[in-house]
């Protein structure tokens, strides 16, 4: 658990070079760390409605959960965020990423970070946003069937049905969004019906969560004292294109090529008032220092509320 103090901003693509060189000079970091993550946004699929009774704890919440892993295919390696992504008629941009469980040649291990975050604290005269974030990282092995293991390893296509199981499980889920599952493979699912499987998606399903959306983040990270400075773009699936060859097409969430900036400090304990005050001061100082370049602001806490609204 960490208490995350943060400020956010955005800047247009034309200011990228200027901002990067300023940050480089400011932090003294010649080669910033790469950010390249893939996130599944999940939500509990059945609503829990406790009876409201006096004298009992009635505030029982359900939270969206982020499942974050690395985005490490060749597309990610070749993607240069300093080059703007432009939509053109005959789309030649090679923003095709491997589906998560499409090509599993030996690479079945993934570290997943499950993250649940509380709504940022409220209060007057706040200088930064303070949010409690709970994270748990787990190592997950994507195993397919044990009987036909050797066969499956050779042919990636055979792995697909693993995910169709999940599809069967929650039939009307937002599978348009998550195209790890491909329609053309459905007929093959009969082969693997009695196979032992362990897919992350079915794991999530067992946990009571369904995948609502997915996004990719690409960017760079600088450090300045205790401050993390992240500059990134968010990608989502481009629904105008059918997936092919175990790959799906991406597009920018914000088509204007605008960069998002997030600066934050993680304080290990929410009760450590001294460190939190120090951190807020540091962030404020940084905000003031860089105000002529990018104007960092306190994000609206309502937008960061990841609780599931009860209908």
């Amino acid at each position: 658990m960490v208490q995350q103090l943060s400020l956010v901003a955005s800047f247009p693509h034309s200011k990228y070079v200027q901002t990067m060189s300023t940050l480089r000079a400011l932090t003294g970091i010649e080669k910033p760390q790469d950010i390249s993550t893939y996130t599944l946004l999940t939500k509990p699929y059945s609503e829990f409605k406790p009876k409201v009774e006096p004298g009992k704890v009635n505030q029982i919440e359900q939270y969206f959960m982020k499942c974050i892993t690395t985005w490490d295919d060749s597309t990610s390696d070749n993607l240069d965020i300093s080059v703007p992504i432009i939509k053109s008629g005959n789309d030649e941009s090679n923003l095709w990423v491997d589906t998560l469980f499409g090509d599993l040649n030996g690479n079945t291990r993934r570290n997943w970070t499950l993250q649940i975050s509380d709504i940022p604290t409220a209060g007057k005269n706040q200088t930064v946003s303070a949010q409690t974030v709970y994270e748990s990282t787990l190592v997950h092995y994507h195993t397919t069937n044990t009987k036909k293991g050797s066969l499956a390893n050779g042919e990636p296509k055979k792995d697909e049905p693993v995910d169709t199981e999940m599809k069967d499980a929650d039939a009307d889920a937002d599978l348009k969004e998550v195209r790890e599952v491909k329609v053309e493979n459905q007929d093959e699912s009969s082969i693997n019906t009695n196979a032992t499987t362990d897919s992350f998606l079915s794991f999530l399903h067992d946990l009571g969560y369904e995948v609502k959306n997915q996004y990719w983040i690409k960017g760079v990270r600088y450090f300045h004292g205790d401050i993390f400075i992240e500059t990134f773009k968010v990608f989502v699936r481009d629904d105008d294109f059918q997936s092919k060859d175990n790959q799906i097409k991406l597009k920018l969430l914000d088509s204007t090529n605008t960069f998002q900036v997030k600066v934050y400090i993680n304080v290990p304990k929410a009760t450590d008032v001294e460190l939190i005050n120090q951190g807020s001061k540091d962030l404020q100082k940084f905000q003031d220092f860089i105000k002529n370049l990018i104007s960092l602001e306190i994000p609206d806490r309502m937008y960061m509320d990841s609780r599931v609204l009860k209908s």
Partner: peptide
């Protein structure tokens, strides 16, 4: 940034 956050937190 708030709109982006809304997408990232609440779909």
């Amino acid at each position: 940034p708030n709109q982006i956050l809304k997408f990232m937190f609440q779909d």
